[in-house]
Amino acid sequence: MTKIALVTGANKGIGKEIARQLGEGGFTVLVGSRDLARGEAAVKELVAEGLDAVAVQLEVTDAKSVDAATSLVARSYGQLDVLVNNAAVIPVGDDAAAGIADDVLREAFEVNVIGLVRVTQAFLPLLRKAERARIVNLSTSLASFELVGDPESRMSTVRTLGYNASKAAVNMVTVMLANELRGTGILVNGADPGNCATDMGGWSAPRTPSQGAAVAVQLATVGADGPTGHVYAEEGRLPW
């Protein structure tokens, strides 16, 4: 039976590369995109490569959109084997703690944390129907207290409180959900793709989206003896 994977924010960048690599691994990939036309354009590209991909309109901040996407997946497939929560923003105006505006901080948490939890809650019944489901939440080294707290680390110089703090909250969601789901066969982990050349990371970033996607795909396909409740980068488990 073909396994089904949903990737949010998958019409471009790391999300599309995660979808591509899962598709290459034999999954039917549901390309979540808040703009359906952009999702369909990404799917056209993936299908041309011989992959099984379907566009799904999914805006993580819109409960009606999430409910509609959940209903579509339930009707079409009956279960979900992999959920990759990739959709995220660095809001315009993201700034240091001393200067960030309320609305900027609120936007970061609305998309990166509340939206992620909303999507996960909605799809959890379908994930429970799979034999060995996996949830992967995209994180970042900028959410590591140890790295950001080290004045010798480059991470300590990045002044984006909204993004950093919301992703630190995602790490806590990951840990708590993993604890809640222990013994169910569902493994939950975070993936740090590193600084990749994308709209978010900047096109001068040193890593490719393909490189960034690899750790998320690895966690999405890990065996029954794999980890749960941790965050991993290419070099291994991240310090928190």
Results as ranks from 00 to 15, higher is better:
A5W: 02
E17N: 14
I18H: 03
Q21A: 09
G23C: 08
G25Q: 14
G26R: 14
F27Y: 15
V29D: 07
S33Y: 07
D35F: 07
L36V: 13
A37I: 11
V43R: 06
K44C: 06
E45M: 08
E45Q: 15
E45N: 11
V47Y: 10
E49S: 15
A53I: 06
A53W: 05
A53M: 08
A55Y: 07
V56I: 15
L58M: 13
E59N: 14
V60R: 01
T61Y: 01
K64W: 00
S65R: 10
S65W: 06
V66E: 02
V66Y: 01
L72S: 09
A74D: 14
S76A: 14
L80P: 03
V82Y: 05
L83M: 08
N86H: 10
N86R: 07
I90P: 00
G99L: 12
I100K: 10
A101S: 14
V104T: 14
V104M: 07
R106C: 01
R106P: 00
A108R: 02
A108S: 15
V111K: 01
V113W: 01
I114E: 05
R118L: 11
R118W: 02
R118V: 02
V119T: 11
T120C: 06
T120I: 05
Q121N: 14
A122Y: 04
F123R: 03
L124V: 05
L124I: 07
L124F: 06
P125S: 11
E131G: 02
E131Q: 15
A133I: 03
A133D: 04
L138I: 15
S139I: 03
L142Q: 10
S144H: 09
F145I: 14
E146A: 15
L147Q: 14
V148S: 06
G149D: 11
S153P: 03
R154W: 13
M155S: 09
M155I: 00
S156Y: 07
S156E: 07
T157E: 13
G162T: 03
G162H: 02
Y163D: 01
N164D: 08
N164A: 15
A165F: 02
K167F: 01
A168G: 08
A168P: 00
V170F: 01
M172F: 04
V173I: 09
T174R: 04
V175R: 14
L177G: 01
E180M: 07
R182T: 09
R182C: 00
T184A: 05
D192T: 05
P193W: 02
T198H: 03
M200V: 02
W203H: 14
W203Q: 11
S204T: 13
S204H: 09
P206W: 13
P206H: 12
S210F: 04
G212V: 10
A216M: 12
V217D: 08
L219H: 06
T221L: 09
G223E: 13
G223C: 11
P227Y: 04
P227G: 04
G229V: 10
Y232M: 05
Y232H: 06
A233Q: 12
E234D: 14
E234P: 00
E235T: 12
G236N: 08
R237S: 00
R237G: 00
L238I: 13
P239Q: 07
